[in-house]
Amino acid sequence: MTTLVKSRVSTNVLSILAAAFIGIGIITVAGHVQAATLHDAAHDVRHATGFPCH
C-alpha cells in the first residue's frame, strides 16, 4: 500500500517536472534564442516582455 502511494506520488512529481521542462524550453526558444529569423519574428514581444534583446 505504501509503495503504491509512493509510486503514484513520484509519477505525479515526474509528470509535473516534465511539464515544467517543456515550459522552460518554450521560454528559451521564444525569448532567448538568437537565430535571425526567430529573433526578428519574436522581436516586439521580446522587447515588450523585458527579455534581453539584441
Binding site: 505525479n12 509535473i16 515544467a20 515550459g23 522552460i24 521564444a30 519574428a41 519574436a42 514581444v45 516582455t49
Partner: peptide, 26 residues
C-alpha cells in the same frame, strides 16, 4: 507574429507556473 509569440511566451510561463502550483498542491 507578435500575437503568436506572445501566446507562446505566456504558454511557456503557464506551464512553469502551473507545474510549481501543482507541486505545491501535492
Amino acid at each position: 507574429l507578435s500575437v503568436i509569440f506572445s501566446a507562446l511566451t505566456y504558454c511557456g510561463y503557464a506551464l512553469i507556473l502551473m507545474s510549481l502550483a501543482a507541486l505545491a498542491q501535492e
